[in-house]
Amino acid sequence: MKPSLDWQHDIDAIVVGASAGGVTALRELLGALPADFRPPMLIVLHLPRHRPSTIAEVLGAYCALPVYEACDKQRIERGSVMFAPPDYHMLVEDEASVALSLDEPVLFSRPAIDPLFSSAAAVFSNRLLAILLTGASTDGSNGLAAVRRAGGTAWVQAPEDATASMMPAAALAYAGAEAVLTLEEICQRMRNRA
């Protein structure tokens, strides 16, 4: 486990993946972000594919930072939170923008967590923090492994703390993590940025 993360200098971006139980977990996580939180946060939450999503609006109400749904080539802004839109994968194109794609669903999901995590790892390598939360899927395992291979930091919600334990448990078994934390501990680290 890395001793501590100096947010200002060590982390250029945070990627987050969540599935079943994710709305509640993300509400807490976004609620914990202080208004002066700098690293941009990119989130994939598994969503029904054929419905326009209101998730950014809904969760934006709980967050001190601007929360929006990505468009293609949307700029990655510091101090903001960006969600993948329904029915598109969201990929990190370069340090300043995301790109969307209609590639095949991954493990029945589009958006999926693996493409976001892997593409972010390729761009941000060791300056990336990936957080995998609750879910009843094995999406995220490959992505988390890619993040760690590239030298990034992985935090996984403790399976026993998650509404749905499969996703974090599968990722821990497959990829391991720098830290296994309860949602409250993750939120605490966000508040303290430590």
């Binding site: 990929l91 990190v92 194109e93 370069d94 790109a99 794609s101 590639d103 493409p115 892997s118 593409s119 390729a122 761009v123």
Partner: peptide, 9 residues
């Protein structure tokens, strides 16, 4: 072409 998606494919 956009790199991230190409890399993946």
């Amino acid at each position: 072409y956009a790199t991230a998606s190409l890399r993946r494919r």
